[in-house]
Simulated assay, not measured.
Amino acid sequence: MREIQLRDAKAILSAVVDDAVRGEPSVITRHGRKQAVVMSWAEWERLSTVPSFGRLLMASGLAVDDLPKRSEIPLRDAGF
């Protein structure tokens, strides 16, 4: 992923967008600090629809009885 200064990105914005559409995102920097990323719409949609771990678990179809029971044996003293 290439880095490009904001002032340079302004001058060649069309080329930066064309590169992003071809799958080559760019990091926009300002005063040497990373500020933004230009990526294709398709890539953004793919990344923004990744489900959270909680949603994956909820969608798994597991019922409470499907999970093993926790042991009733007390934990040993760690000696801290």
Results as ranks from 00 to 15, higher is better:
E43S: 11
A15T: 13
L75R: 14
P74K: 11
A42T: 11
V38P: 00
R30F: 13
A59Q: 14
A63V: 06
R33M: 10
S48T: 06
A78H: 08
T49L: 08
V27T: 08
G23M: 12
V27E: 02
R22P: 01
E72T: 12
L13A: 15
M1N: 12
R70Y: 09
D66N: 06
D8K: 12
V16N: 01
V27C: 04
A36S: 13
D66G: 05
I12A: 13
R46L: 03
M58P: 01
W41G: 02
A59H: 12
P68T: 06
E43F: 01
E45A: 09
G32C: 05
G61K: 07
K69N: 11
R46T: 01
I28E: 04
G23V: 12
A78C: 04
M58V: 08
G32N: 05
R70I: 11
S60T: 10
V16K: 00
V27P: 00
G23Y: 11
L6Y: 07
A20W: 02
I4P: 03
E72F: 04
S52Y: 00
I73V: 15
R33Y: 11
P51W: 01
M58S: 13
S52R: 04
A59R: 15
R55M: 07
V21P: 01
I28C: 09
V50P: 03
P25Y: 05
W44K: 06
I73S: 10
I28P: 02
A36W: 05
